Amino acid sequence: MSASGGRSAQLKHTGLRSGWTTGACATAATTAAYTALLTGEFPDPVTITLPKGHTPAFALAAEEHGGSYAMAGIVKDAGDDPDVTHGALVRSTVRLLPPGSGVVFRAGAGVGTVTRPGLPLEVGEPAINPVPRQMIRDHVARAAARHGGTGDVEVTVSVDHGEEIARSTWNPRLGILGGLSILGTTGIVVPYSCSAWIDSIRRGVDVARAAGRTHLAGCTGSTSEKTAVSLYGLPEDALLDMGDFAGAVLKYVRRHPVERLTICGGFAKLSKLAAGHMDLHSARSQVDKGLLAELARSAGADEALAAEVAAANTGLGALHLCSAAGVPLGDRVAEVARDQALAVLRGAPVMVDVVCIDRAGTVVGRSTPR
């Protein structure tokens, strides 16, 4: 896969465009800036090699040569992925250092700094993740070998408006302050993989464990977070904004256990978990009203009520029918969702309970921990 001028490539069979991570953009910007320091000319477009061998080319959106430093900027194209950093200008400013200094990383404006343990970076380090750091080191070394440099440089990565953009990410909760993280393991953003969100879930578990938290809550949104805090008094760093990615939480906690995991979310979404779906997004899984009818029967509904549940317009509609009849469908969905979660955990030493809420945050179903 290659991209002319940084444009994303078309994914086979899907019609969707892949994009490039902030780490790939920072690597390309660094390569262009360091090359300009060594040669006096900015390569434009600048081509880099990603970890799996792809060689995208990026057009420069900004460049500046100040004699002792050079800066290059690249606009991030996330393709068709719903990425908050799409369109952000990622800059790298490179300065020469004395021989033997190696590559020193700095956080510029809009790039965060790590303030809590549990991440793959030490406290006080700029939030430039390990794979992007290695990509940058590799490309600095290649440019040095090609143009007669020593490879000893200070690399300051910045993102225009990054601090503002970061407010809509997990960074503040993870203790990454002042801006965004420079992310990426392959350099490529696959549309609708929501890899950044899933990575944030994993880092959230890591930070919570490092802080000694033994009870975490995977929540589908802000209303369910408030419910979890109200029920259990959990601190902010014990709350995982899992969105629709229940499977991502469960699979990571399976490998990195905590004593207790609560899953809290809307009744309809968690009825999908009860049906065995790990991705709860409306475009990728649907409420199974046939299953709801079966669960209603097991909770005491007669055949007439079960038929009404099966014909209900929505999951909440089915819940209201059962509530009016005194049938605890919410509790039954929570119990089955808990059992599905335990199946994914595969015997990991984690106690699980599930809390279902309505749109107002009222608890409409709850399982016992198991």
Rank of each mutant, 00 (worst) to 15 (best):
Met351Glu: 15
Val350Ser: 02
Val229Leu: 09
Asp331Glu: 12
Ile198Trp: 00
Glu259Trp: 09
Gly290Ser: 13
Gln134Met: 11
Ala310Phe: 10
Pro235Asp: 09
Val159Cys: 09
Arg17Ala: 09
Leu345Lys: 01
Val344Ile: 13
Pro191Arg: 02
Arg370Trp: 04
Asp138Ser: 09
Met278Ser: 15
Met71Pro: 07
Ala3Ser: 14
Glu259Pro: 13
Asp331Ala: 15
Gly300Phe: 00
Met242Trp: 12
Ala324Glu: 05
Val75Cys: 07
His13Gln: 09
Tyr252Leu: 05
Ile176Ala: 05
Leu234Phe: 12
Leu292Tyr: 03
His161Ile: 02
Arg203Trp: 09
Ile182Asn: 01
Arg332Trp: 03
Ser298Trp: 10
Asp331Leu: 13
Ala318Glu: 00
Ala268Asn: 04
Gly317Lys: 01
Arg7Glu: 15
Gly149Val: 06
Arg213Glu: 15
Ser224Gln: 07
Leu119Arg: 12
Gly151Tyr: 02
His54Met: 12
Ala275Phe: 06
Arg209Ala: 00
Val103Met: 05
Leu292Ala: 09
Gly184Glu: 01
Arg254Ile: 02
Gly266Leu: 13
Asp160Gln: 09
Pro45Cys: 12
Gly204Trp: 01
Pro349Cys: 06
Pro369Asn: 03
Ala324Gln: 08
Ala78Thr: 02
Gly290Ile: 04
Pro117Trp: 03
Val287Leu: 06
Arg142Ile: 05
Ser68Phe: 13
Gly66Cys: 08
Thr22Ile: 06
Thr47Cys: 12
Ala33Pro: 11
Gly221Trp: 06
Ala301Asn: 00
Gly66Gln: 04
His277Arg: 00
Glu236Pro: 12
Ala318Gly: 02
Val333Ser: 01
Pro82Cys: 11
Pro132Asn: 08
Gly330Asp: 10
Cys356Lys: 07
Leu16Arg: 13
Gly315Pro: 14
Gln340Lys: 12
